[in-house]
Amino acid sequence: MDAITQNLDLFWNGFLRSLTICLWGGVGSLVLGTFIATCRVAPVAPLRTFGTAWVTVIRNCPLSVLLFMFAFGLPEIGINAEYYYFGLAALIIYTSAFVCEGLRAGINSVSAGQAEAARAIGLTFTQTLTQIVLPQAFRTSIPPVGSVIIAMFKNSAVVGAFGVGLDLYSVGESLTSAQGFAALPVLTGVAIGYLMITLPAGVGLGVLERKVAIAR
C-alpha cells in the first residue's frame, strides 16, 4: 500500500484534475446538447435533419475515434492545441449527443393532453411552454441526463489515457510505467478514486429520481 500512501497528493491532484475535466465537459455538453435537442424538436425541417444527423453519427462513433480525429486530424489543417483541449472538445461533442437524447426523451414523455389542457384554460404559447411542458420535461430528463454525466466522468479516463496528463488515469500510468510501482496497488487506488465519485453520484441520482418523479 506504500504506493498509495506515499503518493497521496499525486492521487488527490489527479482526482481534482479528473473532476475539472468532468466539470468543463459537463457544462460544455449540457449547453451543446441542449442546442442540439432544440434543433431536434424545432418546427424547422433543416434544423431537425441536422439534429438527427448529429445524434446518429456521434452516438454510433466511438469516443476514441473522435479523440484520434481531433488530435491527429486537426493539426493537418493547421489547428494546433494541447491534447487537453482536443480531449475536452471530443468529450463534449461525444457527450452532447447523449445529453440531447436524454432531453428529447423528457420532452416526448409529456403527453399532448397536458399542452391541450393548458391551451384550453387559455394559457398562451409561452406560458404553456414555460409553465406546463418544460417543467415536466425537465424533471423526466434528470435521471437519463444524470447517468450521462456520471458516464462522462468515467469517460474522462479515456481522455486521460489518451495523454492529457495529470488526471487520475495518468497518475496511475506514470506511477506504474515510469516509476516502477507495482500495478495492483496503484491501479486499485485509481479505481477507488473513480468509485469515490461514481458510487455516491449513482446513489444521489437515485434519491433525486424518486424526489422529482411525477405520478402519471
Partner: peptide, 13 residues
C-alpha cells in the same frame, strides 16, 4: 463496484 469503474480502467487493470 464494476459498474462504477470506467471500462478503460478495467482493460488497463
Amino acid at each position: 463496484l464494476l459498474r462504477g469503474l470506467p471500462v478503460v480502467i478495467t482493460i488497463y487493470f
